[in-house]
């Protein structure tokens, strides 16, 4: 059963920083069946049209994590992205290297920052002294304990999440979605004895820089859902450490702040998040803002229907207790 061949125009990012001043896109015209993975198409370009095109690839079955790249503006694995839907939506396939890391050549990026961030969270088991591993036997672990890892064991460290993350782009302090999902994996491991240390350390080291845009969860080819694990880490961090950091204080203050009037009391939020010294540091910016928007200096009046807001909070409180 011969499948119908589609016209598949590829515009592929080409750049050799050692010899070229600027990147360019090279057009390759292919004719392939709709179910062909982008990686297969790129390898066909290499074999039949242009052996100088360079990229990373290995397993072609979404387990080695080599072929993450940007396909029609989305970070994903080339080996598991079929060309058909891409062509139907965009009419062509534009291939770029991953974002948030420098290009070595064509689609190959320098991934050092990704791996450094991963190593920064100390991704190895620190044995739990309260529950030492039994001599010569595996640690017992129930299926329920295994379930606590959620989807994090599926991570193939492809860095699609890191490439998609705007917080990585904005702040080098942010370890990125993969590193935080990995941290979560150690925090919930019953064999690990450093849970509190890990949570205490990550609070001032980037946990609260996540923008909750969920682009990592959208990008992840293995369904690891890093943004949800980051939210879990925030809850675990507050539960274990209290609100020790402007980020966690902000989260709690925000919650109480809205509850009071159904609308944000911005002045109070800044005070609760940053304290008086923090407020002083932001004075200049605050005054400029107040000049344009005088209301922020006043305590807001409760909005119409504030009782409904209160009811929502009660429901949420009950959920949490459960």
């Amino acid at each position: 059963m011969a499948a119908e061949l589609l016209d598949a125009p590829f515009d592929v990012y080409r750049f050799d920083p050692a010899h070229e001043a600027t990147p360019r896109y090279q057009r390759y015209a292919l004719h392939l069946p709709a179910h062909t993975p982008v990686l297969t198409a790129l390898l066909a370009i290499r074999a039949e049209l242009d052996p100088t095109l360079t990229l990373r690839y290995s397993c072609r079955s979404a387990i080695c994590g080599s072929c993450a790249m940007v396909i029609n503006s989305k970070s994903r694995l080339a080996c598991q992205t079929p060309i058909g839907p891409e062509l139907a939506r965009h009419g062509r396939i534009v291939i770029d290297p991953m974002r948030n890391m420098p290009v070595i050549r064509d689609l190959v990026t320098e991934m050092r920052s990704f791996w450094t961030n991963y190593h920064r969270i100390e991704p190895h088991l620190k044995p739990n002294r309260a529950r030492p591993p039994p001599e010569g036997k595996p640690n017992p672990m129930t299926p329920a304990e295994v379930a606590r890892f959620q989807e994090t064991p599926r991570c193939i460290s492809c860095a699609a999440c890191y490439s998609a993350c705007p917080a990585v782009e904005a702040d080098p302090m942010f370890p990125g979605p993969m590193a935080l999902a990995k941290l979560y994996r150690f925090v919930v491991d019953p064999r690990d004895g450093a849970t509190n240390e890990r949570l205490a350390r990550i609070q001032p080291e980037g946990l609260w820089l996540c923008l909750r845009c969920h682009l990592c969860t959208e990008a992840c080819p293995k369904g690891v859902r890093p943004s949800e694990r980051i939210m879990d880490l925030k809850e675990l961090a507050i539960a274990s450490q209290g609100a020790t950091d402007p980020g966690s204080r902000h989260a709690l203050a925000f919650k109480e702040n809205i509850r009071e009037a159904g609308v944000l009391n911005e002045l109070k939020l800044v005070r609760q998040t940053s304290g008086l010294p923090g407020m002083a540091a932001q004075l200049g910016q605050g005054l400029r803002l107040a000049a344009k928007k005088r209301e922020i200096l006043k305590r807001p009046k409760p909005i119409e229907g504030h009782a409904e807001v209160e009811k929502l909070y009660e429901i949420l409180d009950r959920e949490e207790e459960r």
Binding site: H124, P138, M141, P143, V146, D189
Partner: peptide, 20 residues
């Protein structure tokens, strides 16, 4: 011994209901 060592290194194996 090899499997036990890998478990102690942190491998997340699937488990039976009794924790083995």
């Amino acid at each position: 011994p090899t499997v036990v060592e890998m478990e102690h290194f942190g491998t997340i194996f699937s488990r039976a209901d009794d924790g083995s």
